[in-house]
Design a protein around this nucleic acid. Structure first.
Length: 189
DNA sequence: CCAGTGATTCTCT
DNA sequence: GAGAATCACTGGC
């Protein structure tokens, strides 16, 4: 398993890591699917939580790569990131959507929804479907309850990130082309 | 189909 | 005290 957490993958720029994570498999306690949508954030990025330096909330972003940063969004949802880059860089990749492959029934129950397209098609939705909460903040993605395995996508597209007001023009959102499981369609090139 | 909006809690200024 | 890396629901066309 350690081989999958090769520094040459995780120590790179979050934009490269975000793009290359598309197609990977992510499970929590055996429930999850293929990553089909991500966004990159780094410390020089005004839209990033790490922009103004370490705080109690974002401290995990400044820790070792391949660890999980979880935060509360809009007081209602949880959102999950994978830290990348050298320790102290404050870079991470937001996991925005999965194509459900494992534990569909459990996810449907947690989400109160049967349609697979609605189970993990957004950062808040997938955390609810996978039961990710503050308890997972700071854990290593290499250890239980996580399973993270390399995969690939047929074609990767990019576009502006969602829901931010600063640096909104940066095309640091990535997704699998044509996937019906992304949170929203990508703007046409 | 699309735009608008309330919910709800935490963070940092 | 404002604003937030969202979601679900509503009402209009």
């Amino acid at each position: 398993m350690t081989a999958l957490f090769d520094p040459t993958f995780w120590l790179r720029d979050p934009v490269a890591v975000a793009r290359d994570l598309i197609g990977w498999e992510l499970l929590v306690n055996g429930v999850g699917g293929r990553i089909v949508e991500t966004e990159a954030y780094h410390q020089e990025d005004p839209a990033s939580h790490s922009f103004s330096g370490p705080t109690p909330r974002n401290r995990v972003m400044f820790g070792p790569p391949a660890h999980v940063y979880v935060y509360r969004s809009y007081g209602v949802h949880w959102c999950m990131n994978l830290v990348c880059g050298p320790e102290g860089d404050g870079a991470a990749v937001l996991i925005r959507a999965l194509q459900p492959t494992h534990g569909l029934e459990i996810m449907a129950e947690r989400r109160g929804l049967a349609d697979p397209r609605g189970l993990c098609s957004g950062p808040g939705k997938l955390c609810q479907a996978l039961a990710v909460t503050r308890e997972h903040d700071g854990l290593s993605a290499a250890d239980a309850p996580f399973e993270l395995r390399p995969g690939h996508a047929t074609e990767i597209i990019s576009g502006p990130r969602i829901g931010i007001t600063k640096a909104a023009e940066k095309p640091w959102r990535f997704g699998e082309a044509g996937s019906p499981y992304v949170s929203r369609p990508f703007p046409k090139a």
